[in-house]
């Protein structure tokens, strides 16, 4: 496993798509903060207080550095989708180059090959997400202020919590993308499925919210969706303990489920 991790990290360092992914997501993070500032402050001329939470306008998110930092981890925002695509590209490269054979021929178990790839990609995604979150936090704080109540020393712990929860939620997406990559073994098809799934999940979430979040059955299905967990995360400063436990449990369950399914399928398939 240690050998596989070394090989996978070395490969990642040499992969231009990993660097391009980092640059594009960082650019998107910068653009989204600047764009919001230009649209709300300069074009719509909405008063600053309306956007920092002190006097917010209904339907418009409370735009603060904290908001931008947390929104980085959302799978359905621009950077989230781009990162998911890049992860798909990195994960399928071993199949498109047929280099997966070398790992198998040298006696590495398929479970270890899968887990090594998973760990490498989680570390890569964490680095990209944290860089983006720091950029968004810094720029967002400059343009909109850190939060309505300003920055305090205790917020450092909150930032750590935000990074941790955000990464856990995004790891659900990583485990799903990795499972798809190992299932279809093709970069193109993986990208199409990732984009399709991203839209589908957002659509299902929106439909469920619109058709009645107050209905118990609808609420049950709504609570299963990662988008719902992210909405709780994004709309609350600290998540309520019930929601926090639910999000932690469901995210962990999804990660374990997708990874177990991925490993099981990979163990059963033949390598060409």
């Amino acid at each position: 496993m240690k050998n596989l991790l070394k090989a996978d990290f070395f490969r990642l360092c040499k992969d231009k798509s990993a660097l391009v992914g980092l640059i594009i997501t960082a650019a998107l993070s910068i653009v989204s903060v600047v764009l919001m500032y230009v649209v709300f402050y300069l074009i719509l001329e909405i008063p600053p207080g309306a956007l920092d939470g002190s006097d917010s306008i209904p339907g418009i998110p409370v735009l603060t550095g904290e908001y931008f930092m947390k929104s980085v981890f959302q799978s359905s925002n621009n950077a989230g989708i781009v990162l998911a695509i890049v992860i798909g590209m990195i994960a399928t490269k071993d199949f498109s180059f047929n280099t997966i054979r070398q790992k198998t021929i040298h006696g590495h178990s398929r479970t270890n090959i899968y887990l090594s790839q998973f760990i490498t990609i989680v570390v890569y995604a964490a680095v990209v997400m944290i860089i983006n979150a720091v950029i968004s936090l810094a720029l967002g704080s400059i343009f909109f202020g850190y939060s309505a109540s300003g920055f305090e020393a205790s917020d450092l712990l909150y930032i750590v919590y935000s990074f941790g929860m955000g990464l856990l939620m995004y790891t659900v997406i990583i485990s799903l993308v990795l499972m798809i990559s190992f299932l279809v073994k093709s970069t193109g098809i993986t990208i199409v499925i990732v984009i399709g799934l991203s839209f589908l999940l957002s659509m299902v979430y929106s439909i469920l919210v619109m058709t009645g979040g107050s209905n118990d059955i609808v609420q049950f299905f709504l609570n299963l969706l990662p988008d719902q967990h992210f909405a709780w995360y994004l709309s609350n400063h600290w998540m309520a303990s019930k929601e926090l436990i639910y999000s932690l449990a469901m995210s962990t369950l999804y990660i374990v489920l997708f990874t177990t399914l991925g490993i099981t399928m990979f163990n059963r398939t033949d390598i060409k």
Binding site: A7, K16, F97, N98, T99, I105, H106
Partner: peptide, 28 residues
């Protein structure tokens, strides 16, 4: 054992030396 099955299994985006380095990591 070593095997070259049908098409060569190489990282096309790397140099020859980098491919050897990756292989050395895989082998340990």
């Amino acid at each position: 054992i070593g095997a070259v099955v049908e098409t060569p299994s190489l990282y096309l985006n790397m140099t020859a030396m980098e491919n050897l380095k990756t292989q050395a990591y895989i082998i340990g």
